[in-house]
Structures are given as structure tokens and as C-alpha cells.
Design a protein around this nucleic acid. Structure first.
Length: 676
RNA sequence: GGCGAGGUAGCUCAGUUGGUUAGAGCGCAUGAUUCAUAAUCAUGAGGUCGGCGGUUCAAACCCGCCUCUCGCUACCA
């Protein structure tokens, strides 16, 4: 086992085109914060690094849409994000941003260093260029007709209507979304990082030396490595980002994925002049907390960058979480299907720990999980209020009732007392073990077991009965309850920092160091304060209001559902007559092997029986459609698909959800009948 | 279709290199209790461990096939 003297924890940089939601929190920030708080309490040298990712095309597009500058966009969201993290008690040592001067400098130097060492490949290719705007166009800036489904408004990287990913050069009638002009193809040079060069090193490092990584992380890396790595472009033609610091690269910036992880380094630099200690010394344990969408960047690409540079250490572990769903649906920023952190903090003032608790207890550690408001309420009312809050309240109230709020001295322990006290260290140990292996939900459960232990102890000793006959015995009982309470204030601190502080207020104590936890942590004679409630119940109406808010979002989304595509340009009758559309009868149908969507159909067109390959396998089963009459375009030039020549196209009606339906005659007609 | 991750009690999840009656929390039922925000404590019910087949003295765990969910990827004339 390697010995580490300090720990550097990075958290995925949230993209500054929207606020942070519970999915980000459950996947990355809450577990990272719990982990770091724990290490700090143990007196370890640890840094928690974060920052906003502020470059990239989506931000420039958002700015353009709203008629403001990209800087305005990122300023707005950076502030919202930063403040809401603070509000939830995510204890960043530094929360920076990639538009900062330090970052520009750092990223620039990093690129230059790799460039000077000859770690890049230079390649030229033809890309679309807008002559009026005088710039190359990012894929997202080009729209046109999708070559597959023929719908207009497809982007250069993807058609949103049929979901196909495209190359910009595939688009029919490409237009620049900056000026509306037709772009020209122009040669441009880019720099590529040859990942393949580092393949063997990465293979050994991950597949052999880090078998302990979580299965989802290890598996995805293995999949990438087994498929072979390829060079990846690290620059883009864009004016928002870190300029490429070499001659002949005017108008080019670093690609976001290259620039963003360097943000971890820049942020560390901003925090401390001793940043190199954290990034370059072998006795540093570096950990990347991320969501599963970021696994390859942090396990393969960024390490390849660091290795190419040469002086940096690689991460020790990458505890990536899966995704959190919301009320059964995927969280989505664009569909506003989310619980936004800044809104939660407004709607539930003083309840930061409730969210922290629920997200930890239900974290998607091994598979995707679902957040529901009902579960939120249940965990608050049945666990935080009933188990933890209640125990503390009982202990404090009884101490005031019997001993004027002074911690009574314990007398002789009986066997049950000893047993109870001895259970404390073993619980602590379980919490530690789980925290250190990134099992946060289990760690939290074990920590809560200390409160359960307290409740059980009270139920078994019954001080409210014993007080009538044996006050001395009750002194011991209450002493032990307060020892447990004091331990709770430390044990729960990583998970529930606000509650821990509140609890210390009730007990009138200073923070207790992690190592100090045990059987004797609060002294006899010490005065404690009057009890207040540690947690309040969450009422049905509160939860209903949140559910209603989501239902409203859903309704709004449906109302705003895709507008009907506007009519295309007029054509003349001759144009129309060029198309030969017939009624055909499907006589055979079978699935095309090794595809998900394709069916191979034999259609009786009246003219002949011909083969047509159609992407309808997800909507129709082969055996169900034999005998169905459909519309078929018979004079479309043939095209080979998966090795089968498709002679014609079956006409399909497609709704906004992408559901397909045949266009069929309403009564049987003779195959070959013309449609016009 | 390929690759990866999952499918264990009503819900959310643990199950170490295969080894006796498969565990926890919440929910549910019954009982106890009243110090406490009707909060607690005890006991119990509830599982052909996704399905089928195989290896083995022994399979939730290993192998093969199938099936469903999530992610990446190919296919949509």
C-alpha cells in the first residue's frame, strides 16, 4: 500500500450555461465534500478543488441567442453556481473559473510545453468557413437539411429530428447560423494529441495497476483501451476560449475538453503558491470526483495529457458515480426537469442537511437512481426527525428535567452500559472504512446507527421510570446519552455539517476532533443549553408544492412541444411529378442482422417485387406487417445499406416523438396504383 | 448489432477469493412503552437472488444462451 502525505480532490467543473441541480450534487459534489471534510477532521493535508467550465460552443450560442456576450453568460451562471455551492456547505478550498487569467496562462503554457516537446500531430482538413463573418464555423453553427431524414434545421454534428450524428460536410444546403450565408470549404490546421502513443502505458496503469477502481469506471476504460485509441483534436476554430499559443494559430482556441481539466491545475495555483506539491509529488493522492459521463476524459485523456507533459502525477482513483433521475425521468437542463440547487436553498431555508442527507443516502453509487419528493419527505420524517432528532431531543430534555441541564457524573457501569459504550468505537470504525473506500451511503447508515444505539439504550434503561426510585442510576444513564450525543456531533459532521454545528450549540461544546471520539467526551458538571428541534417534519403540502412545480414543468414542455416544421419552398407540378409513388404490398419482412433499426422488406410494387431496407424495426415487428399496404417511392436511386441494395423508400409519417407510422390506403387497392 | 454497467424482500441497496437457515434501512403487521416532533423499542411476515441450461460435493457468486434497464457506438434513403 502506497503511503500518501496529502490528498488533492478535484470535482468535475460544472458547465456555466446553467445552474447546478441535484444530479450534479449527488454524483459529485456532496460525496466529494463528505470525503474532504472527513480527511480534514482527521488532520490530513487535503484540498478540494472546483470551478466553472466557461468555454465551449454551447455558451457562445446561448450568448448569441440572448444577445449578450459569452462573458455575460458565464458571469451569471458562475455566480449562481458558486453561491449555491456555498449555501449547501460544499467546502471548496478554491472555486475558480476557466475564464480567469491564471487559467488562460496555465492552459496556454501546458499546450506550449506539449507542442515544444513534439507531443502533438498537426493535421489539415477542409472545414466550413463563413466569409462574411470571417471565421470557421463550429459544427453547431452550421444548419442544413439532414441527409438521412431530410428534415431541415439539422446541426453540423447531429440531426435532432432523427438523432443521427453527422459530419458538417454531410449536410445538404448548409447555412451559417451567424450570417445565414452559405459557407465555403476552406482548409484549416489543427493539433491532435496522439492518444494511441500512450496506449500501452495507460493499459498497464489502469488494467493492471488499478483493478480496485469501481466496476463501472474500470469497465468503461477497458472498453476504450480494447478498442484502440486514436488521435484527438485539441484545438478548434472559435474565438471563445484559450487562444492557441503558437504562430499560425490565430483565431483558434483550445478545445474545451483539453482546457477544462487543466482548470483543476489553475485553480490549485490560485489557491496556493505551493501548488506543485499537490500536482507533482508522488506522495500526493489525487482523486477525481466525477459523473459517469466524464470517465474517459479523466481516466484516459487527461492522464494522457499529464503523461505527455511529463512532470505531473496521475490520479490514484476516479470514484465516478452513475446518474440520478428525478421522479422517474432523466434530469435535463434544457427541459427544465431538475431540482435546482439555488431554488432548493430558497424553498427550504435552513434545510441544507436534509438535501445532503437524502442525496447521500440515495446516491447513485453503483447504478442510476431515482430522486422522488416522497422519498425526500420519508427520509426526513422517518430518519432525520424520528431517529436522530428525536434521540438528541430526548437526551437534552431529560437532562434538563432531572439535572437542571448539567451533565451528571456517571456512577458504576453495568454490563449493558459497557456493551453500549463499546459499540461506539466499532461504529466509528465502520464509518471510517466505508468513507475511505467511497461507500458514502453505507458510511452514513453506520453513522446513523449511533443515534439508533442511543434510542435503544434509552428504551432499555427507561430513566423516566428509574428516576422514581434510583436517581444515581439515572445520572449514569443520562451521562451515557450525552456521551453518545457528543460523539454524534463529530461523527455526522462530514455528512451534516450544519446539523453538527447546531448540535454543538445545544450541548454548548466546541468541535470535537475525530480521534477524540469515544466513551468520555463530555465532562460531568458541564452545562448544556435548552433543546430546540434539530429537524422539522416536512408536511405533505410542502412536498405537493414541489411535485406540482414539476408537473407544471411537464405541462409546459408538452405545450411547447416541437412546433410543426414550417412548409418547404414551393415546387412546381413537374417537380412533383418526378416522384413516382406507388401503393405496394409487403410480402416478406425480416430483421437485418446486426442492426437495431433495419428491416429488409420485399415489396410487391405491381411493377415488380423488390427489396427495400427500412429503418422501422423499432416500430414494427416483421411478422406483423406482412400483407400491409404501404406507400413506396419507386424511382429513388438504389443505395446499399449493410450490404443490401435498397430499391426505393417506404413513406413513413413521423410525429414529434419520433414515432413512425405507415402511410397506407384506407381500403385495399391494387399494388402499383399510383399516388398523386 | 458491438462494448460497458446493472437486474437480490413492497421501495432503496449490501453481499468479501462459490461453503450451513441470503442480509440492512425504510415501508407493513403484532406487541411493549410514554422521556420525546404520535417520535421510540421488540418481534414477525415478506425473496424459485431476471429466465433457462452447464461446471461442482456445494452457485446470488464461475461458464454458456436468452431477456429487461441505463450509457457509449454502428445502422435509419
Amino acid at each position: 500500500m502506497k503511503k500518501f502525505n496529502r490528498t488533492l480532490v478535484t470535482t468535475a467543473l460544472p458547465y456555466a450555461n446553467g445552474p447546478v441541480h441535484i444530479g450534479h450534487l449527488a454524483g459529485v459534489y456532496v460525496p466529494a465534500d463528505v470525503y474532504v471534510r472527513y480527511l480534514r477532521m482527521r488532520g490530513e493535508d487535503v484540498l478540494l478543488i472546483g470551478g466553472s467550465d466557461e468555454h465551449g460552443v454551447p455558451i457562445t450560442i446561448k450568448a448569441q441567442k440572448e444577445g449578450i456576450t459569452p462573458q455575460d453568460v458565464v458571469d451569471k451562471y458562475h455566480n449562481i453556481i458558486k453561491n449555491s455551492f456555498e449555501g449547501l456547505g460544499i467546502s471548496f478550498d478554491v472555486y475558480s473559473r476557466t475564464s480567469s487569467p491564471t487559467h488562460h496562462e496555465t492552459a496556454s503554457e501546458f499546450f506550449k510545453s506539449l507542442h515544444d516537446k513534439g507531443e502533438f500531430i498537426e493535421k489539415s482538413s477542409e472545414q466550413y468557413y463563413d466569409e462574411e463573418a470571417n471565421q470557421f464555423l463550429a459544427d453547431r453553427y452550421i444548419t442544413g437539411t439532414c441527409p438521412h431524414c431530410k428534415s431541415e434545421g439539422a446541426y453540423g454534428d447531429q440531426c435532432e429530428s432523427c438523432g443521427t450524428s453527422l459530419n458538417a460536410t454531410d449536410l445538404i444546403n448548409p447555412t451559417s447560423s451567424i450570417t445565414g450565408n452559405k459557407p465555403i470549404l476552406k482548409e484549416t490546421k489543427h493539433w491532435f494529441l496522439p492518444l494511441d502513443k500512450h496506449e500501452d502505458d495507460l493499459k498497464k496503469w489502469i488494467l493492471e495497476d488499478h483493478k480496485e477502481w469501481k466496476p463501472n469506471v474500470y469497465g468503461q476504460c477497458k472498453s476504450w483501451l480494447d478498442n484502440g485509441l486514436h488521435p484527438r483534436a485539441v484545438t478548434r476554430d472559435l474565438n471563445w476560449g484559450v487562444p492557441v499559443p503558437v504562430k499560425g494559430a490565430e483565431g483558434k482556441v483550445l478545445y474545451v475538453w483539453f482546457d477544462a481539466p487543466i482548470g483543476y491545475i489553475s485553480a490549485t495555483k490560485e489557491h496556493t503558491p505551493e501548488w506543485e506539491k499537490y500536482w507533482k509529488q508522488e506522495d500526493t493522492r489525487m482523486l477525481h470526483f466525477i459523473g459517469k459521463d466524464n470517465i474517459v476524459f479523466h481516466c484516459i485523456i487527461f492522464p494522457a495529457m499529464l503523461k505527455a507533459e511529463g512532470s505531473f502525477i496521475l490520479p490514484e482513483n476516479v470514484p465516478a458515480n452513475e446518474f440520478l433521475n428525478l421522479e422517474g425521468d432523466k434530469i435535463s437542463t434544457s427541459r427544465n426537469w431538475a431540482v435546482w440547487l439555488h431554488e432548493y436553498l430558497e424553498d427550504f431555508p435552513g434545510k441544507q442537511d436534509v438535501l445532503r442527507y437524502v442525496l447521500t443516502a440515495n446516491a447513485p453509487e453503483s447504478k442510476d437512481n431515482d430522486f422522488t419528493w416522497k422519498d425526500f419527505q420519508a427520509r426526513n420524517n422517518n430518519e432525520l426527525v424520528a431517529i436522530l432528532g428525536n434521540f438528541i431531543n430526548r437526551a437534552v430534555v431529560l437532562t434538563h428535567k432531572y439535572f437542571e441541564g448539567k451533565v451528571p457524573a456517571a456512577g458504576e457501569y453495568n454490563d449493558f452500559d459497557k456493551e453500549t459504550l463499546e459499540a461506539i468505537p466499532s461504529l466509528i470504525e465502520k464509518v471510517e472504512k466505508n468513507l475511505e473506500t467511497f461507500h458514502f451511503r453505507e458510511a452514513l447508515k453506520e453513522a446513523m446507527n449511533l443515534a439508533r444505539l442511543g434510542n435503544k439504550y434509552l428504551a432499555d434503561t427507561e430513566p423516566w421510570k428509574v428516576i422514581k426510585t434510583d436517581e444515581e442510576r439515572v445520572k449514569t444513564i443520562m451521562n451515557i446519552c450525552l456521551q453518545i450525543s457528543t460523539n454524534l456531533s463529530t461523527l455526522l459532521e462530514p455528512f451534516l455539517p450544519f446539523t453538527a454545528e447546531k448540535l454543538r450549540g445545544f450541548l454548548n461544546i466546541e468541535p470535537l476532533a475525530w480521534e477524540k471520539m469515544g466513551a468520555q467526551v463530555i465532562e460531568a458538571g458541564h452545562s448544556i443549553n435548552k433543546a430546540q428541534l434539530l429537524f422539522e417534519k416536512v408536511e405533505d403540502t410542502t412536498i405537493q408544492a414541489q411535485v406540482d412545480k414539476l408537473l407544471a414543468t411537464k405541462a409546459a414542455n408538452e405545450a411547447a412541444a416541437k412546433p410543426v416544421t414550417p412548409a418547404k419552398e414551393n415546387i412546381n407540378f413537374d417537380d412533383f411529378m418526378k416522384m413516382d409513388i406507388r401503393v405496394g404490398t409487403i410480402v416478406e419482412a425480416e430483421k437485418v442482422a446486426k442492426t437495431k433499426k433495419l428491416l429488409k422488406l420485399t415489396v410487391d410494387t405491381g411493377i415488380d417485387k423488390r427489396t427495400v431496407v427500412s429503418g422501422i424495426a423499432e416500430h414494427y415487428k416483421p411478422e406483423e406487417i406482412i400483407g400491409t399496404q404501404v406507400s413506396i417511392l419507386v424511382n429513388l436511386e438504389p443505395k446499399k445499406l449493410k450490404g443490401i441494395e435498397s430499391q426505393g423508400m417506404i413513406l413513413m409519417a413521423e410525429d414529434a416523438d419520433g414515432k413512425l407510422a405507415f402511410v397506407s390506403p384506407d381500403k385495399v387497392v391494387k399494388p402499383g396504383s399510383e399516388i398523386r
